[in-house]
């Protein structure tokens, strides 16, 4: 069972790998920021007093969470094309990833909102704060602090899921791997290298989020406890 692995032939393509990794990170960061904002809005919408808004948000969340990302990407890709919008693969990928992570973010934020004890909302009402002020200071910010670990895990998963965008020719890391392996005829080595790169990217993202958490949440930084 002789395996002959030729890593140097693959590793000399490191500029392409780096470019692919950079694009993967770009995709992930854009989609994370947009998806986090969008998902938070949807989570707020789920508690809306007007039933149609609340129901629309719930339908969106359940539809995304119960269908594969690959199908969603194709639907966005072909859907945009059918209404005449010619966007770059990069833009389509960001749109599809945002729509996807928005639903998961909404669920995580909703759990965070529901964990806020009713007594604190009453105390805030007793202090004459407006609905918006209560939402912002007493519900939203503490909820983000509380669900921050779950949120950051979700965003790292998003970065890994971006590999699926190779199927619509976005030039992220997996697409680069497909190209290089077809060029070098060294498929296994190529994918090993790429797997290692993804693991490094995950570690980088986790470290980045950890640092961000220290900056955003002074209470956590000072006391070291979870909300």
């Amino acid at each position: 069972m002789g395996i002959q692995l030729d890593f140097p032939a693959v590793l000399e393509r490191w500029p392409s790998f780096l470019a692919g990794a950079a694009l993967t990170l770009e995709l992930a960061l854009f989609a994370t920021v947009l998806g986090a904002l969008f998902g938070t809005l949807v989570a707020v919408g789920r508690g809306a007093h007007r039933a149609p808004i609340a129901r629309a948000c719930k339908v969106y969340v359940e539809a995304i969470r119960n269908t594969p990302l690959l199908v969603q990407i194709f639907l966005v890709y072909f859907g945009l094309a059918s209404i005449g919008l010619k966007l770059s693969a990069f833009s389509v990928a960001i749109a599809a990833l945002t729509i996807n992570v928005g639903a998961y973010t909404a669920e995580i934020m909703r759990a965070g909102f529901e964990a806020i004890p009713r007594g604190q909302i009453e105390a805030a009402e007793g202090l004459a704060l407006s609905r918006f002020q209560i939402y912002w200071h007493i519900i939203l910010l503490p909820a983000v602090e509380r669900v921050y670990p779950a949120l950051t895990s979700q965003f790292v998963l998003l970065m890994l899921a971006s590999s699926v965008c190779s199927q619509i020719s976005a030039e992220e890391l997996t697409a680069v791997a497909n190209y290089i392996q077809s060029d070098t005829y060294r498929a296994f080595e190529t994918y090993i290298v790429v797997a290692v790169l993804y693991i490094i990217l995950s570690l980088m993202m986790r470290a980045g989020f950890w640092g961000l958490g220290l900056v955003l949440f002074p209470r956590r930084r000072r006391l070291g406890t979870l909300l």
Partner: peptide, 10 residues
Amino acid sequence: GTPLLVILFL
């Protein structure tokens, strides 16, 4: 830490 697609290719 590895995308499923890459695991499938591997």
